[in-house]
Amino acid sequence: MTLEETLQKIHPLDEKAMEISRKRWDSIAKPLHSLGKMEDLVVQIAGITGSPDMNLKKRALVAMCADNGVVEEGVTQTGQEVTAIVAENFLTGDTSACTMCRQCGTDVYPVDVGMAVDTKVPTDLKVAMGTRNMVKEPAMTREEAVKGIEAGIEMVSRLKAKGYGLLATGEMGIGNTTTSSAVASVLLDRPVEEMTGRGAGLSSDGLNRKITAIKKAIDKHQPDPKDAIDVLAKVGGLDIAGMAGVFIGGAAFSVPVVIDGFISCVAALIAQRICPTVGDYMIASHVSKEPAAHLILEALGKEAVIHGDMCLGEGSGAVALFPFLDMGTAVYQSMSTFDDIHVEQYEELV
């Protein structure tokens, strides 16, 4: 399905389902609104799925894997070859996020949307053999950026058909905090220095190289902040494009999608700028340790549940939210009501 066709399928959340969900929460034998964000998220998911009787048992982490040409500028601590190694480790379950997924019953789907080499990770949605060095030329053409988004949309379509009811966004791509900082700086109109952190452990010299590279790329290509796809194409990455597509696909196919950390937040921001309604279908998990993360969440109008100073990536923060959602849905679906226990119901007091 093309991006344009997908956007036409996106509608506002189902208010009727949300109202039924709110009333159910209010009938449960506990003080009103006492589970806070647990209640809010369950109500949101009712609106996303169009049903107050959601089933979140079958869930998946979608990890978009891609390489970024800007690593030529010395902006990372590790080499580009690490992208392929970790991507294949998703298949064997040998990553931090995979370990967390096993703990909470979550399947893992790595996607090669743009790695510089072919691996055992499926390549049928691959757009290019990595992006170009954005310091020297645009990272992608506009067409490549759109194809990256459509790869994410296609993944949601496939997983929806398999019965998945909840998705987490993840990524693997050496250099992607550099591209994410560049995109965030343009879309939020904030200084590059404010949007850029040390990523996976850069030295002070490395951080300076990273900031310089981002500034050069933005100055050279002048991405249009009013056109999120233009920004993505010129200074972004295919992993970000793929995740943006997952968010858009989630809205089109009525599947809740959980935002991970900084890079995932940037993808969410792109998706929201392409179609504002998509933002209502996203769930924020945590506040990344990267300096720009809280600013992006604020721009998205989201409040994270977890404040754990996490910055691992891979989708680890998104998956960490799943047990929280499980506990909320367990109370929502199975706890006694005031009528069941013959106790007078709490009332909303002014």
Rank of each mutant, 00 (worst) to 15 (best):
K160D: 05
T123C: 05
K210P: 13
E150M: 13
I259K: 02
E298M: 11
A318Q: 05
L300H: 06
S336L: 08
V62F: 01
F262P: 00
Q103A: 14
M134C: 14
P191C: 08
G175D: 03
T92L: 10
N89V: 00
Q44S: 12
A228H: 06
G279I: 04
F247W: 01
M282E: 08
S157W: 11
V255I: 07
V331Y: 04
K136D: 14
V86Y: 00
L232G: 15
L321E: 01
A66F: 12
L238T: 14
G250T: 01
M134A: 10
E5V: 02
D189Q: 14
D14R: 05
G170V: 12
T78P: 02
V331E: 05
R273C: 10
D112A: 01
T78C: 07
V258R: 01
A241K: 02
H286R: 07
R273F: 03
T83K: 01
I218R: 11
G315M: 04
L202H: 07
K234V: 09
G50L: 07
A66R: 04
I153K: 09
I274H: 00
T179N: 02
I214E: 08
K9D: 06
S203G: 05
Q8P: 01
L349F: 12
D230T: 11
I45L: 15
L91I: 13
T337H: 00
M327G: 06
D205P: 04
E298R: 12
A182Q: 14
G245M: 10
L207K: 07
T196A: 02
G197D: 06
K215R: 15
I85E: 02
E171V: 09
L159S: 05
D118N: 12
G105R: 03
E150Q: 13
K136L: 11
E348I: 15
E19G: 10
W25K: 03
P31D: 10
T169I: 04
S285W: 00
D309S: 15
H11R: 15
S180N: 07
A87I: 00
L187G: 10
D227F: 04
C311G: 13
P191K: 07
K37I: 15
S316E: 01
N55M: 12
R190C: 11
L159Q: 10
K220T: 07
A139V: 14
E347F: 08
E72P: 14
V70L: 15
E150H: 11
E15Y: 09
I259Q: 02
E144Y: 11
Y346P: 04
L295N: 13
A271V: 05
D219K: 12
M310P: 10
A268Y: 01
L202T: 03
K126C: 07
F253S: 10
V319H: 11
R273S: 10
G165P: 07
L188W: 09
A320C: 07
S181R: 06
E39A: 05
F262N: 01
F90E: 00
L7P: 01
S264K: 02
I85T: 08
L91Y: 08
V305P: 02
I28V: 14
T6C: 14
Q8I: 04
P256T: 01
A213C: 15
E19V: 05
I270T: 12
P223M: 07
G308V: 06
S157Q: 12
R198W: 13
I218G: 05
A128I: 13
G242T: 00
N89H: 09
